[in-house]
């Protein structure tokens, strides 16, 4: 077995083992269920930012596309979890196709702003159609609706395994991308899109595919979040939720498969512990960000890769 495959499957196995051996306390089990879902969001973001080099400031749009497609279909149309997931998947593909097609007419900072603006529009629309979405208050998906294959997804252990399953699929998919020729083209575009163009690649098409993959994975994360945690609200579509995946990816290491996981764990527990010390716990996050940029510019895993393990995908 190749060592990169070994590392990533090993990480997944470790997360299974932690649960099987009962090492988690209830509290950390709940936290990790949440972190894994958010990591899926980070993985989605990383495909576009880390591998393709496109910095979006509007990914909350994709996250909430999945979140609301799943949540509203269960709430208003009595869809079951399976149907809601399929709908959320299709809707995420559609939204990322349309947004990608439009936003990719711009590059660089304009791309950042256009994605940010699209995301703002989505946020305002959620508020505007408050009759359906209940606006900022949001809606609760009742425990009785959160059953999949007769498994109660609100049970902490089942929730953990569900999150881990979604995470594992996305991680392996991400690994496959990173090792495939498709992924190498994305990296080529990140490093020098003009040269990739000259080599005869349809750069625009590859970028669009990257947006669709990235947006859809983010949408799956959103749908999973709503279904596993039972709440769908407008705050997930607001600007901070576009910034978070960027931070996880940058902290963990952009363009590394495990980076988003490391970044999300790091930031979650940093906030968790800091909030015991001070109300202004975000100041500790701020300081951590500065330290990382000053001393580990490539992110935690990225720095390891740069110094010791150049083979990490």
């Amino acid at each position: 077995m190749k060592r990169d495959l070994f590392i990533h499957l090993g990480a997944i196995a470790l997360l299974f083992l932690l649960e099987i051996l009962g090492i988690f306390s209830d509290y950390h089990q709940g936290n990790f269920a949440r972190i894994l879902v958010l990591t899926v969001y980070g993985i989605g973001y990383n495909v576009l930012f880390g591998y393709t080099g496109l910095l979006s400031l509007g990914h909350a749009l994709f996250f909430s596309a999945g979140l609301y497609a799943a949540g509203l279909s269960i709430y208003h149309l009595d869809y079951n979890v399976g149907q809601a997931l399929i709908l959320a998947f299709c809707f995420s593909v559609l939204v990322s196709l349309v947004i990608g097609y439009l936003a990719l007419r711009t590059v660089g900072v304009s791309f950042m702003i256009v994605t940010l603006m699209f995301s703002q529009i989505a946020y305002l629309c959620i508020l505007y159609f408050g009759g359906i979405t209940r606006g900022d208050e949001g809606i609760v998906i009742q425990q009785s609706s959160r059953v999949f294959l007769s498994l109660d997804l609100s049970d902490p252990t089942i929730r953990y395994y569900s999150a881990l399953t979604v995470f594992s699929f996305c991680l392996v998919f991400n690994l496959w991308i990173a090792r495939s020729s498709f992924g190498r083209v994305l990296i080529a575009i990140r490093e020098n899109s003009d040269r990739a163009l000259m080599l005869g690649y349809n750069v625009q098409l590859y970028k669009l595919l990257a947006v669709i993959i990235s947006g859809t994975i983010s949408g799956i994360a959103g749908a999973s979040y709503g279904i596993l945690f039972g709440y769908v609200g407008a705050s997930f579509a607001a600007v901070p939720y576009s910034i978070f995946p960027l931070l996880w990816v940058l902290l963990g290491g952009a363009g590394t498969v495990l980076g988003p996981l490391i970044g999300a764990i790091f930031m979650f527990y940093l906030i968790d512990y800091a909030s015991d010390v001070t109300d202004a716990y975000m100041i500790i996050v701020g300081i951590a960000l500065l330290l990382v940029t000053l001393f580990a510019r490539r992110g935690l895993l990225g720095e390891l890769r740069y110094r010791f393990f150049p083979w990490i995908p």
Partner: peptide, 27 residues
């Protein structure tokens, strides 16, 4: 979650803004 699982609180209490309540109540 922290109240229930970490601190083993007997009950939870508080907060004003509706969206926080609605987001927390399922838990």
């Amino acid at each position: 979650e922290k109240f229930a699982n970490q601190h083993k609180c007997d009950v939870a209490f508080g907060t004003l803004f509706s969206h926080v309540v609605i987001g927390s109540a399922p838990r």
